[in-house]
Nucleic acid binder design. Structure first.
Length: 202
DNA sequence: GTATCGATTAGC
DNA sequence: CTAATCGATACA
């Protein structure tokens, strides 16, 4: 619900040395006790505390010993749910983002959740920020999807909960990480079944 | 206490 | 495909 509504909206981050902003083009939804892929699946901890708080706040976590990821907390206080921001289309502050990322091409600046947080300059220090008050904000202007369709497919990078099509993105957008066509279309073209696991583990 | 594994990425 | 790199988690 909230995940789809966030597609096409703008996130702006006002931290030194200047504003970096981008349009949301790819997200993933995570829920609480019913979603084994969610950080909130096993209850509240110091790390995921913000997910259990009021909506409209940033949940920023640290993972793989080197990356941060940005989420938008949804649902009322006490009901953990969040939307992972996986990719933005750069709009403002491209030079600041380039300096932080060490990458030049615009379409690769904020492609992937770790890259989004890096380009915006976010760390655990920004966990819990109010996304209406700032300095990290979801701007109060209508979503602009530029005629692109909202497509859905399985979430990326998880090993449980993959059966739920809770990854959403703007079809064909160059800043989307991973597959850009719908899962169904992609499976049809390749003659493979979406239901067949593509990866096994010894 | 030790062992394992990530809501990832860059590079070969 | 793997290394990087460390906090959270599982388990003895």
């Amino acid at each position: 619900m909230v995940a789809r509504a966030l597609l096409g909206r703008v996130i702006a981050c006002d931290l030194p040395p200047g504003r970096v902003a981008g349009r949301i083009v790819e997200v993933e939804a995570y829920r609480g006790p019913l979603d084994p892929a969610s950080h909130a699946f096993r209850g509240e901890t110091p790390r995921n505390r913000v997910m259990f708080g009021p909506p409209g706040h940033a949940y920023v976590y640290f993972t793989y010993g080197m990356h941060h990821c940005l989420n938008v907390v949804c649902e009322r206080k006490g009901t953990p749910a969040a939307v992972l921001v996986r990719a933005l289309e750069p709009l403002e502050g491209l030079e600041v983002a380039r300096a932080r990322r060490g990458v030049h091409e615009a379409h690769r600046l904020m492609r992937g959740p770790g890259c989004v947080a890096r380009a915006l300059g976010l760390t655990r220090a920004h966990d819990g920020l109010d996304l209406v008050a700032g300095p990290l904000r979801v701007l109060d202007e209508p979503a602009r999807r530029d005629g692109r369709r909202v497509l859905a497919g399985p979430r990326i990078g998880i090993r449980v909960g993959t059966e739920r099509p809770w990854r959403f993105w703007l079809g064909g957008h160059p800043c989307v990480s991973g597959p850009r066509a719908s899962a169904g279309a992609s499976a049809r073209r390749r003659g493979t079944s979406t239901l067949t696991p593509s990866r096994t583990r010894p």
